[in-house]
Computed example of a mutant assay.
Amino acid sequence: MSTITLNLSPTILLTDNQFYEICQNNRDLRFERTASGALIIMSPTGGESGLKEANIITDLNNWNRQKKLGVVFSSSTGFKLPKGGDRSPDAAWISRERWQSLSLTERKKFPPICPDFVIELRSQTDDLEELQEKMQEYIDNGLRLGWLIDPQNRTVEIYRLGQAAELLYSPFTVSGEDVLPDFVLDLTSIFLEE
């Protein structure tokens, strides 16, 4: 199944609680919501993409356990972005200070915060243009650094707050720069044939 977008607005305007309940009552699907209220329905990822995603999250989490600078989230986590969208990146990181500024209630549902760092890993069924728009939405909501990793084209688009996206062709690694000091992701296994 590919991604399906339902434009509910203006007929149906889901409250934050209604959107959260739809997600909880349909755990076999992944849902996102755009700032304009469109509901995005995604099926679970395939095995190869899931393996690559797990490896990326493992590397990010291992770095974070050593540095103790923040918290790491998987693709199961939805974030209520400041400008209205509800998004679930494949991997996300938030500085400890920003995470701790949220109340316990805010942390339990979809945290009302844009991550400092996200990774989107393009699967075979993902539309590249839609992922690029999603990355721009993160930037518009305050994301400091983001990577759009595209194994099919062997590229990485790097998104930085206040800058144009940078496109890298077949890089061996990408760096977390000043957002994730000393974090380097090895892309060798990500770019292997699926």
Rank of each mutant, 00 (worst) to 15 (best):
Q18A: 12
G46R: 12
L14P: 06
Q100G: 01
N25Y: 07
P115C: 13
F79R: 06
P115G: 13
V72D: 01
S74C: 02
Q66M: 08
L39C: 05
D126G: 11
T15N: 08
P82I: 06
T34A: 02
L131T: 14
R122G: 09
S103E: 09
Q18I: 04
S88R: 10
L128K: 15
T125G: 12
S49P: 00
W99C: 06
Q66E: 14
R87A: 03
S103N: 09
Q124S: 15
N25H: 12
P111I: 11
I119D: 05
I22F: 02
K67V: 09
P111W: 10
L121D: 07
S95Q: 09
P82L: 07
L51Y: 11
K67D: 02
D127I: 14
F79K: 01
F73L: 02
A54H: 06
V72T: 12
A92K: 02
T105H: 11
K68Q: 14
G50L: 05
K52V: 00
R27T: 07
D59W: 06
E53N: 15
N55C: 03
S75Q: 04
M42F: 04
D59I: 00
L29S: 10
K80T: 02
E106M: 11
A91R: 05
E32N: 06
R27E: 11
S95H: 09
L14C: 08
T15I: 06
A35I: 02
K67Q: 14
P44I: 10
G47A: 08
V71Y: 06
L60Y: 10
S74Y: 03
K68F: 00
G70F: 04
I57S: 07
A91N: 04
Y20S: 09
D28L: 10
E130V: 14
D127H: 14
T125W: 09
E133F: 13
L128Y: 15
G46S: 13
I113C: 11
T15R: 05
L131N: 14
D86G: 03
I40D: 02
L128Q: 15
K109F: 12
T77W: 02
A91C: 05
T45Q: 08
R96T: 03
Q18F: 03
Q66G: 12
K108C: 08
Q124E: 15
T34Q: 04
S74A: 08
K83M: 03
G37L: 04
E97D: 13
N61T: 13
G70R: 08
P112A: 10
L81A: 02
F31L: 13
N64R: 10
E129Q: 15
Q100E: 15
G37C: 02
V118C: 13
G85M: 03
Q24H: 07
N25E: 13
K68A: 06
F117V: 11
F31I: 06
N64M: 08
S49C: 09
G78V: 00
L39G: 05
G47Q: 10
E32I: 10
Q124K: 15
D126A: 12
S36N: 14
Q18E: 15
F117L: 11
A92E: 05
D59C: 08
A54V: 01
R96Y: 04
P82S: 09
Q124I: 15
L81N: 04
A54D: 05
M42C: 06
Q132A: 14
I41N: 01
L29T: 04
I94V: 14
P44F: 11
G70C: 07
S88F: 01
K134Y: 12
E97Y: 05
E106S: 14
T77E: 01
I119S: 05
V72L: 00
E48T: 10
